[in-house]
Design a protein around this nucleic acid. Sequence first.
DNA 1: GTAAAATAGTTCGCATTCGAAGTATTAATG
DNA 2: CATTAATACTTCGAATGCGAACTATTTTAC
Lengths: 150, 150
Amino acid sequence: MKENEQQLDEIVSSFRRISHAFQQLLWKDAEELDITPTQLIVLRKLSVNPDIGITELAELLHLGNSAASGVVDRMVKAELITRQRSEIDRRIFNLALTDKGIDIRERSKQSLRTHLLPLTNIPLEDVGELLRIHGEIVEILEQGREKKKL
Amino acid sequence: MKENEQQLDEIVSSFRRISHAFQQLLWKDAEELDITPTQLIVLRKLSVNPDIGITELAELLHLGNSAASGVVDRMVKAELITRQRSEIDRRIFNLALTDKGIDIRERSKQSLRTHLLPLTNIPLEDVGELLRIHGEIVEILEQGREKKKL
DNA sequence: GTAAAATAGTTCGCATTCGAAGTATTAATG
DNA sequence: CATTAATACTTCGAATGCGAACTATTTTAC
């Protein structure tokens, strides 16, 4: 039983550590572009999925609605994206990149390539394993969450 | 090249997702104890490593100094831990659990066991693989960081 | 067709996290 | 011994993230 707890601790700790390391590196990328890591990801997501609403964006970012709302708000103020009411359903906003947003997104591709390039040294089969095990964990965690809701 | 970028995106996305799922579950645990996930981890770390200072705590949590300082501050106010100047080196604080902190820590063991138990269903060899690949990634990421510093 | 329920966003208060710049204390260097 | 450097920690402003409670709009149901 004690070993169990220690192993769980190791897993949680490992995720904390790696999250931190990722955040640190993404910050370096973002800093050069006068932006934040989260906003960088928003630019990428919007570029791949144009004209989505805030709820959809929140899902893509694995965020709550309120958090996404705040990020969008700051990005609109920074003129990186636009937020326009949908004509069809006036509850929804259509988010789109501005020229400035597109520009930063393009430049971010370069710096991301530079800084994350070392990650391509990870063997392909390890990436597969990683994603598989992560999937396993997420499933378990979200199942636990479902149960709590009932 | 395009596939590379997509794979990196998948990795980053996977980590975001799993961090989120973990946070959600730890919150459930913590909520019942009138505490936050970070504070729960602090209790655990302090319980295993008594009388450490704030810098050491920050390292264990994979946090910056200022963040750790804030967490400790709130926990002292909540009377979960104490912060006493070391007599030997008056720059250092010695952190220790209060009775209340010990109590919550003990109760947290129970609820952690309950909520994280499903995670013990992950095959042992997968846990090993996970930690190994995480180690690989952290090493790559931190190497990139070292380089930037020079 | 109107009342109720569902959906999309916002706002609030709070905790967490960062880096940069500051204070205090100790150690090292001359 | 005094100046300087290093270490431990705090404080600041800003961004991120949460859930709960709110407004506005659309859909569903009676």
